[in-house]
Design a protein around this nucleic acid. Structure first.
Length: 535
DNA sequence: CGCCGTCAAGTTCTG
DNA sequence: CAGAACTTGACGGCG
């Protein structure tokens, strides 16, 4: 049984609050009070609680001293990675007792070792901070680490909406649940890669083994998708590391039987598999070498799909790329590359996508119609770089191309990150999507197309849309709470040298007593906060 | 195990 | 003009 976190209002928990008045923080499903129990000292625990509350209650702005900010930053990052509040099942009384257990700081107890085969009837805390107390015993016994029980996640209700859309929703490359399986050796993902140094050191067979493992895990992902009613997936471009590299490249033939197995499974379930090579794929570059690399990349993607036995719906999506200060000339080069240079089997899978900086639908539709190459319409990109043609009209025209080519139409959907203002900020994808575009309600436009959801939360974003619109049955155990501290900006999601510099300056400044703080600007401080949540 | 600097490729935008 | 952003984070070394 699950309950809504929102349902636990203060009014419903008067006794709890009077007993524990320090529970003055916003309810958060991703912030575990376990993180406060990291030392045996209750006093220390409480000091940390107080400092954490300060941070939380002040929202995203860090107003405490830098060392504390740093401490909290690391703490919250760990917590948000691990997630979560565990509350066991059923009625309100057990909810309350579980919450009390959560929120009352106490000295860590020695974890009871479960006998092998015994049912796990109790919820064991997922608490990395208890580890030190186990260490001696674990070393002595030399037993493999016990798998930690799955935490129970608190999933909020979603606002229900209506749609006529009946197509498939898909996600790109990575499944957050499978990727984050613990221990790390259990992680399932398709983008194992390596460095060239490692290829030199370990040899080509070793690289190829990475690719084989990736395909093996792809099979697991396809099965997971089927079990969760997801039937549309973008294959990772990194499935076979360096496969298109001029020196370290290799054919995928060595993996043909496993690829065929994965493809057969997808076919059996009616899953659509597509690919989307990276930004290095430039069909209009003035540099011949770049075009050659791009074609190698496309051929590699094509071979992957071919060996899987994927049909015509298995398209390879690329953007127009750069403009090189000469859009008409570049468009001619793009057309030449597609028409005269691409091998036929590659061209057969090729589709173009409008981007947010250079080529909108105004630019691409004429190319697409002339060369009979479908256009994958991206709602988010069109919002950032609008074309003169309304989305519904664009989709109608590209759907005609899809129909001529016998390929099922496909579109992309994503939201900008909340609070993003500038174009560059708005480029970045939000964690999830709030709603489906209205166009999807229109006959011949959107009701029967496939929609790739490009969101940081991957399959979670799909499942959330399933819930909002009642599109498919959703398994509750597959749901994870959203990150409540989604950063506003792209800055801070990745390592940001400038931000780190500013942050370090702040820390140095405070610790160094009286050093100049002039260079510390708020943006950088906020970036630091973003980092700790998202990195 | 967690952290952090770095990593194949191209291009554009920003300060 | 250097750094950061897009794409899909992941590796590798270190504590």
């Amino acid at each position: 049984m699950y309950f809504s976190w929102l349902s636990l209002s203060r009014r419903r928990l008067p006794s709890l609050y009077s007993k524990f008045p320090y529970l003055q923080r916003p309810w958060s499903s991703t912030l575990s009070m376990n993180s406060l129990q990291e030392t045996p000292s209750a006093a220390s625990s409480q000091r940390r609680s107080a400092r954490l509350r300060t941070i939380v209650n002040n929202g995203t702005s860090v107003v405490t001293a830098a060392p504390v900010a740093n401490d909290i930053r690391q703490k919250r990052k760990r917590v948000s990675d691990k997630v979560s509040v565990e509350i066991e099942d059923a009625g309100l009384s057990s909810e309350l007792s579980a919450i009390e257990d959560e929120f009352i700081p106490k000295a860590p107890k020695k974890k009871r070792k479960k006998k092998a085969g015994k049912e796990a009837s109790e919820v064991v805390k997922v608490d990395a901070d208890e580890e030190p107390y186990d260490e001696v015993e674990v070393k002595k016994a030399r037993r493999p680490r016990k798998p930690k029980p799955e935490p129970v996640y608190i999933i909020q209700d979603v606002e229900r909406r209506e749609t006529k859309f009946r197509g498939r929703l898909g996600y790109a490359c990575l499944n957050t649940i499978l990727r984050n399986k613990k221990p790390a050796s259990d992680a399932v993902f398709c983008s194992r890669t390596c460095r060239i140094d490692s290829i030199k050191k370990n040899g080509m067979d070793w690289v190829k083994e990475l690719g084989r493992k990736n395909v093996q895990d792809l099979i697991t992902m396809i099965q997971w998708n089927e079990d969760n009613n997801i039937r549309f997936l973008r294959l990772s471009s990194e499935m076979f590391p360096f496969a298109s590299h001029p020196i370290y490249g290799y054919s995928l033939d060595y993996c043909s039987s496993l690829l065929a197995e994965a493809g057969a499974l997808a076919k059996k379930y009616g899953h659509r598999l597509t690919t989307h090579p990276g930004q290095f794929t430039q069909l209009g570059s003035p540099k011949p070498g770049v075009i050659e690399s791009s074609i190698r990349e496309l051929e590699y993607h094509c071979q992957m799909l071919d060996l899987m036995g994927v049909g015509k719906d298995g398209v390879t999506i690329v953007h127009g790329g750069g403009v090189y200060d000469d859009k008409p000339g570049t468009i001619e080069r793009i057309k030449t590359t597609i028409r005269d240079v691409l091998p036929q089997h590659v061209r057969d899978r090729l589709v173009l996508e409008n981007d947010e900086l250079c080529y909108n639908a105004d630019d691409l539709l004429p190319i697409c119609e002339e060369l009979d190459v479908p256009l994958v319409f991206d709602y988010h990109h069109d919002a950032l770089k609008p074309s003169s043609i309304p989305p519904a009209a664009i989709i109608k025209r590209t759907n005609a191309i899809f129909a001529r080519r016998g390929i099922r139409p496909k579109q992309h959907l994503s939201d900008p990150r909340p609070g993003a203002v500038t174009l560059m900020e708005r480029r970045a994808h939000a964690d999830r999507c709030e709603r489906l575009p209205d166009e999807l309600d229109l006959e011949g436009i959107g009701i029967d197309v496939d929609l790739m959801i490009e969101a940081k939360d991957k399959e979670q974003a799909v499942l959330q849309l399933y819930r909002i619109y009642g599109l498919e049955e959703v398994k509750y155990e597959s749901l994870r709470p959203p990150n409540e501290n989604q950063t506003k900006e792209t800055k801070g999601r990745k390592s940001n040298k400038k931000a780190k510099k500013g942050e370090q300056a702040m820390i140095d400044g405070v610790e160094g007593e009286g050093e100049d703080l002039v260079n510390v600007d708020e943006d950088n401080v906020e970036d630091g906060v973003g980092d700790m949540v998202h990195a």
